[in-house]
Design a protein around this nucleic acid. Sequence first.
DNA 1: TCGACAAGTCAACGCGCATTGACATGGGCC
DNA 2: GGCCCATGTCAATGCGCGTTGACTTGTCGA
Lengths: 197, 197
Amino acid sequence: MTDLAEPARPAAPPRRRDAGATRAAILEAARNAFAATGYDRTSLRDIAALAGSDVALIPRYFGGKEGLFTEALKATIAPDRLRDWDRSRFSRDVAEMMAGAADIADPRTRTFQFLLQAATSPTTAPLLGRAVQERFLAPIRDWLGDEAGQERARVLAAIYIGFLVERLIRGAALEGPERTAFIERVTAVIDGVIGPG
Amino acid sequence: MTDLAEPARPAAPPRRRDAGATRAAILEAARNAFAATGYDRTSLRDIAALAGSDVALIPRYFGGKEGLFTEALKATIAPDRLRDWDRSRFSRDVAEMMAGAADIADPRTRTFQFLLQAATSPTTAPLLGRAVQERFLAPIRDWLGDEAGQERARVLAAIYIGFLVERLIRGAALEGPERTAFIERVTAVIDGVIGPG
DNA sequence: TCGACAAGTCAACGCGCATTGACATGGGCC
DNA sequence: GGCCCATGTCAATGCGCGTTGACTTGTCGA
């Protein structure tokens, strides 16, 4: 992980003593680091270096590595902006995003990687499941309208996740006719779920 | 991981000296252990205990932990049995499987967890991507018939993966009307992709 | 101005890990 | 039967980790 740990940018003015700001910086660094390399491969020393802070503060402020991870997870699955999405363009926007390459710099990519990391660990998976139910499925269900209940939200979320994984594995962006056909089909699939059916 | 490491069943006859068999035992143990607890939480000591072997043999035979993981990954992404699937029942079979709970004892679940672990690591993701292309997308494409080319296989694979992840996170099986509606919708979604369209 | 307490620093500890090299031993070949 | 190399065993080493406790320093109120 040394590639991520930039050594406390020298030009930056030394932060005034502020426990709240330090806590926030550590939390932000933790979200990025956990998303990039997962729970086990991320050391507290990495996070502290990324936050320009000291290792010893993390057990003090968050009660340990697990506590930090839990808080980072809560902060990542924040109340979302589903209500802002334009329903008429939603499926095509998603399809075009999925046809591209996974952009590491995109915070949404980081968020997703973080969640996927959490999903693959048997210890964190149940916690993630509960968080997804509360902060992801429920909002989507409300956004769709509750005629068909929770089940459409579940299917939509699953499809969405699947395309994200596929994009992650694929690496490169799609090109030419395959890209066009892919976008058309993904749009149709999503419309089939969020549509009146 | 101590829960997995059964201490070299005492009744078993001591294996005759056979490098090939030992290697195979270690590889099999590694596949199970990596799938269950992931790369970082699995120690070579765990694997050796599971295989009834000695830790020191692993660096010798596989060049180290990473080499073992790579070989285990190769062995896991084996030629599949897509050709056996009955196309007329495929979508409903998949849908009903997805409505259930993820069974940890099922080797397919372990395999999938293993692959998902690999997807989140920047080093193993490209390897996984190539393997999926060769051993998953290509067979699906052939199975579907090649009129629509690679793109339908891609979409189908993504949807399939998505539902697997959703099942993994969900934990419990679906019940009652939500289960029925879920199965109906998943069947429809899959049919929409593998159908003539 | 100065004291007190919060905030930050630093060194050290114990632990588990992968890896190494020296050593023991079984079994096939002459 | 006896050598000898492949095979397996064992102890030791070095490293990175999370965590702890003692220490220093900044900042704010009196």
